[in-house]
Computed example of a mutant assay.
Amino acid sequence: MSTSGRRTADGHAPDASDVAATLRESEFVRLLARADGDCLAAAGLLAGALAERGVPYQVRVGRFGETLADGDRDATVGVGLDPSADAHLPAEATPASATAFDAAGDLDASPDPALALAGVLASDAQPRDRAVRVREAARESGVERRPGVGVPTDDLADGLAHTTLAHADYSGDAGAAQATLAELGLPAELDESARRTVASEFALAVTGGPEATARAAEAVERALRPHALADGPFATVEGYADVLAAVARERPGTASALALGHDARTDALDAWRDHARAAHGALRAATTARYDGLFAARTDAAPVETVARLLRDFRSPEPVALVVTDEEAAAAATDERAIGAAMTDAVNAVGGVGGGTARRGYARFDPETDAKEFLTAFREANA
């Protein structure tokens, strides 16, 4: 087994050339990817490079706290998971998809810049300007920014209702989104002026509600002035990123197929819609409580990681948002606060598995566990 991609003696993660070296020397590779849009895109880019070289591979998808490696002697690449793998793309300081794009280039492959940019846009990594080469390659391939909202479908009502890039009054309800659009008097063929009108309405719908936070005005920007895709599986790269992120958690197999370039668009959009309806519905129905530095939401079964991000960006007056159901929890922070360590400590206190990064965390525990017990444990660990 190659070990060229392991962490260096000073603890830094390997760069793209190290990852490429591991792949170049391997006869079979297992890609162990975290279930999010950035890591799935990265796995797809590395898988594409391996396929071009005729190297067989397998993609496995999991969440924080899960062990995907099985002790075999094949080369392993951890993408957001398993730092003990032969190569590890941590997906924190730099989007994993940006590192994977560079690694694929080092292998003389032809990575898809739209997929790479979708991964970058799906990432919570800061700062994103470390993905300069991805953005340049996307522009060279014909990807251009335009006015409007970044949705995956040409049907605007469908896109606005089911995007998880932001939360508005009509989120999750295509009929309500269609009624809002009807009031704008848009032309049948949208020109730049019409797209700006839609973007303005969407931004107002996201930021103008009584529950919207000041942070919402900044967070909604990720959905505006999208990168249009003339030739791709979705209408915009932002929409591509949204679908990847949602489907990675809703149906990991479908997300893997999408990232690997298979014809999974219809199934992916169905999963995206289901995920969005559940996430937006849970955000509305949740019972919330505010603590010093923490805004917690208690709800029934829900896509907790997506709800935690939406809560953080559009509803939380505190820097850390936590969502807890009967058997899952997720947290998201506005900056680096050792959220993963706090999640690990909390889930260890009640029994279960979990983990995360400095800004994100996920945990799964026995449904017999009292959710209040988990919340208390997380508050203490996050203090």
Score class of each variant (00 low, 15 high):
residue 25 E to W: 03
residue 26 S to G: 09
residue 31 L to F: 11
residue 32 L to N: 07
residue 32 L to S: 11
residue 32 L to M: 06
residue 33 A to M: 14
residue 33 A to Q: 13
residue 33 A to H: 11
residue 35 A to T: 12
residue 35 A to V: 12
residue 36 D to R: 12
residue 37 G to N: 11
residue 38 D to R: 09
residue 38 D to L: 07
residue 39 C to P: 06
residue 39 C to I: 12
residue 39 C to V: 14
residue 40 L to C: 07
residue 42 A to P: 14
residue 42 A to H: 08
residue 43 A to M: 02
residue 43 A to E: 01
residue 44 G to T: 03
residue 44 G to Y: 02
residue 45 L to M: 10
residue 46 L to S: 07
residue 46 L to F: 11
residue 49 A to H: 09
residue 50 L to S: 12
residue 51 A to L: 10
residue 53 R to Y: 03
residue 53 R to K: 13
residue 53 R to P: 06
residue 54 G to Q: 02
residue 57 Y to C: 00
residue 58 Q to E: 07
residue 58 Q to M: 01
residue 59 V to P: 07
residue 59 V to Q: 02
residue 60 R to F: 11
residue 61 V to P: 05
residue 61 V to Q: 02
residue 62 G to I: 03
residue 63 R to S: 07
residue 64 F to T: 05
residue 64 F to C: 06
residue 68 L to K: 01
residue 72 D to A: 01
residue 72 D to Q: 01
residue 72 D to R: 00
residue 73 R to D: 04
residue 75 A to C: 07
residue 77 V to P: 04
residue 77 V to M: 03
residue 79 V to L: 11
residue 81 L to R: 05
residue 82 D to M: 07
residue 82 D to V: 14
residue 85 A to F: 10
residue 85 A to N: 04
residue 85 A to Q: 04
residue 85 A to Y: 10
residue 86 D to L: 00
residue 86 D to Y: 00
residue 88 H to F: 13
residue 88 H to E: 02
residue 88 H to Q: 04
residue 89 L to C: 10
residue 90 P to W: 08
residue 92 E to G: 15
residue 93 A to W: 15
residue 95 P to R: 01
residue 95 P to Q: 04
residue 95 P to E: 08
residue 96 A to D: 12
residue 97 S to N: 05
residue 98 A to P: 14
residue 99 T to S: 00
residue 100 A to I: 15
residue 102 D to N: 09
residue 105 G to H: 07
residue 105 G to S: 07
residue 106 D to H: 15
residue 106 D to N: 11
residue 107 L to W: 12
residue 108 D to R: 02
residue 111 P to T: 14
residue 111 P to N: 04
residue 111 P to M: 07
residue 113 P to V: 08
residue 113 P to G: 04
residue 115 L to M: 03
residue 115 L to F: 03
residue 119 G to V: 03
residue 120 V to R: 02
residue 120 V to F: 05
residue 120 V to I: 04
residue 121 L to M: 09
residue 123 S to A: 14
residue 125 A to D: 03
residue 125 A to Y: 10
residue 126 Q to V: 11
residue 126 Q to P: 04
residue 126 Q to K: 08
residue 127 P to E: 08
residue 128 R to E: 09
residue 128 R to G: 12
residue 129 D to F: 10
residue 129 D to L: 09
residue 131 A to Q: 06
residue 131 A to N: 12
residue 132 V to F: 05
residue 132 V to S: 03
residue 133 R to M: 01
residue 134 V to E: 04
residue 135 R to Q: 15
residue 136 E to S: 09
residue 137 A to W: 14
residue 138 A to K: 12
residue 139 R to M: 13
residue 141 S to N: 06
residue 142 G to P: 14
residue 144 E to Q: 06
residue 145 R to Y: 15
residue 146 R to L: 12
residue 148 G to F: 15
residue 148 G to I: 13
residue 149 V to L: 01
residue 150 G to R: 01
residue 150 G to D: 00
residue 153 T to V: 10
residue 154 D to E: 10
residue 154 D to Q: 06
residue 155 D to A: 07
residue 156 L to D: 02
residue 156 L to W: 11
residue 156 L to I: 15
residue 159 G to C: 15
